[in-house]
């Protein structure tokens, strides 16, 4: 076979606790991240993603503890994003047990941070995360949880970050995030078809068909979702089965 399409549950973490945003407002406390990570490990998730949305700078150390405790009990790849501003921030997360670190806002104001991380720790652990909204003639990069426009073309930005050394691109549609209306497949495909690095589709999954479309129509190498898994609408095995039924190579259970 070939490398498998990856199914990645994403846990939003604030102050060391799991929350899930619906369009990034109305946060619902949904428990302990380590316990949830264990459950996803046991369920056969291909990777796990923690997005740290802790607001206050003082509380940011909490994610390191969560990552360290997760790495002690979960033997699956872990990506951590949120608040990574420098290569030193990335180093702290990698030392705590993250396998990949996602950079978002910092790579908008200073794209070179991607090169810093890739050169020090390898492209394979450097994920560039792009939040985008559809605009008249394409997509625009947004920061601060989708609230702040930047005027930057999202596709061009993503491709630049890959050239700077990002080993993976995590592409989130802020229009779709939390809506359960499906990925912005045109956005994902516009980037995936123009880069040699893997692309992760993110934002908007409501059904298993959305995950399948992310790979078959969005040309993503991996599909990320949150609420569909967290609230028990579907299991990882269901996701793998739906992908397999569509002819996509996935892990056996």
């Amino acid at each position: 076979m070939t490398v498998r399409a990856r199914v990645i549950p994403c846990l939003d973490v604030a102050n060391g606790r799991v929350v899930k945003g619906v369009n990034f407002v109305d946060l619902i406390d949904a428990g302990d991240p380590v316990e949830q990570a264990r459950a996803y490990d046991a369920a056969g998730a291909d990777e796990l993603c923690f997005l740290d949305i802790t607001a206050s700078h003082e509380a940011r150390g909490t994610i390191l503890d969560v990552v360290s405790r997760t790495a002690a009990v979960c033997f699956m790849p872990l990506t951590v994003g949120g608040g990574v501003r420098t290569a030193e921030d990335a180093r702290a997360l990698l030392l705590a047990g993250a396998d990949k670190v996602a950079v978002n806002s910092a790579a908008v104001s200073r794209p070179e941070v991607v090169a810093d991380i890739a050169e020090r720790f390898g492209a394979q652990c450097c994920v560039a995360s792009i939040d985008a909204r559809r605009v008249a003639d394409g997509w625009e990069v947004f920061t601060h949880g989708g609230r702040r426009a930047t005027g930057i073309d999202a596709v061009a930005h993503a491709l630049r970050l890959a050239e700077l050394g990002a080993g993976e691109l995590l592409v989130t549609s802020m229009d779709r995030d939390g809506t359960r209306g499906g990925y912005d497949l045109d956005l994902v495909r516009a980037i995936a078809d123009r880069t040699s690095v893997p692309v992760v589709a993110s934002g908007g999954v409501g059904t298993l068909d959305d995950l399948v479309a992310g790979v078959t129509q969005g040309h993503a190498s991996a599909v990320l979702a949150a609420s569909i898994f967290h609230f028990g609408d579907a299991t990882i095995a269901d996701a793998h089965a739906a992908l397999a039924a569509a002819g996509v190579a996935v892990r056996s259970h």
Binding site: M1, V3, A5, D46, A123, G167, E168, P198
Partner: peptide, 11 residues
């Protein structure tokens, strides 16, 4: 159409 890095589960 293979991506590099080779990232994910494989045989």
């Amino acid at each position: 159409d293979a991506k590099v890095p080779h990232m994910g589960w494989n045989d």
